[in-house]
């Protein structure tokens, strides 16, 4: 059997730009966040006014956080209103039992080596969509809310504190919230491992060039896409 590779434009430019800004922002946020929690740099001798080491790291963390938030909000807009079949929320309906039906089960069975077939989706497969939702969407949401609540503490009674200060109450104290923010940040490196493994594996198994697709936007269709839903 000779395989016909059909080029398919899947990830439009806004999605690809979002992806890489997000990847860079999360990397910077995670590393600066770890640094803020436990500053490693050995203290230089001299006057405190000569240095701004910690202040710079915090500034980078905060500035990157706002880029991350803007990017996230843009992605939400794109998911809700963008005319983009592969990047929309429209198909993602986990509150409906139907969503957990055959496509999801087949995909999970294939990942668990129960089924022999490897379904190959043009966009996200249902298991991938769920993983993205849990890690990237929920994770980001959590980090943004707790992060803004902590940022608001720099200016009590200010704009951000007024909007997000209530989040602190959910955790009891500011310190407890810092701890949870720190703990949940680890969701991203865990996700990175799963994500990188999954794309490389799909490249190898499906030969769909999923890895390069997030740069070029093109995937290669090797076989017929299964229908996610029969409308």
């Amino acid at each position: 059997m000779t395989t016909m590779y059909e080029e398919q434009y899947v990830w439009r430019l806004p999605v690809r730009v979002y992806h890489w800004i997000n990847a860079a922002a999360i990397t910077v946020l995670f590393l600066t966040g770890l640094y803020i929690a436990s500053p490693l740099m050995s203290s230089p001798p001299g006057e405190a006014t000569w240095y701004h080491g910690m202040a710079w790291i915090r500034l980078i963390h905060f500035a990157t956080a706002f880029i991350f938030i803007a990017n996230f909000v843009f992605r939400l807009y794109w998911a809700l209103f963008g005319r983009d079949n592969y990047a929309r929320f429209a198909g993602f309906t986990p509150w409906k039992p139907a969503w957990w039906g055959q496509p999801f089960k087949d995909q999970l069975a294939s990942y668990l080596f129960i089924a022999k077939e490897e379904p190959n989706y043009c966009g996200h497969n249902p298991v991938a969509a769920l993983t993205h939702f849990l890690f990237v969407f929920c994770g980001s949401f959590f980090m943004i809310f707790t992060g803004l609540a902590m940022y608001g503490e720099n200016n009590p009674g200010g704009f951000i504190d007024t909007l997000f200060g209530w989040v602190v109450l959910l955790f009891g104290s500011s310190f407890a919230m810092h701890t949870v923010h720190h703990l949940v940040a680890w969701v991203f490196p865990v996700y990175l491992v799963l994500h990188l493994y999954a794309v490389v594996r799909h490249d190898v198994v499906d030969k769909s060039s999923v890895t390069s697709s997030i740069i070029t936007g093109y995937k290669h269709r090797v076989e017929q896409c299964p229908e996610l839903f029969a409308d």
Binding site: L34, T179, H182, W186, P189, V190, V193, L194, Y197
Partner: peptide
């Protein structure tokens, strides 16, 4: 938080290696 996180990342990596 860092110990738990590192264990989780290690666990994910081990899981993925086994899956590979």
């Amino acid at each position: 938080a860092d110990k738990i996180g590192a264990v989780a990342v290690g666990g994910a990596a081990a899981g993925m290696a086994a899956h590979a």
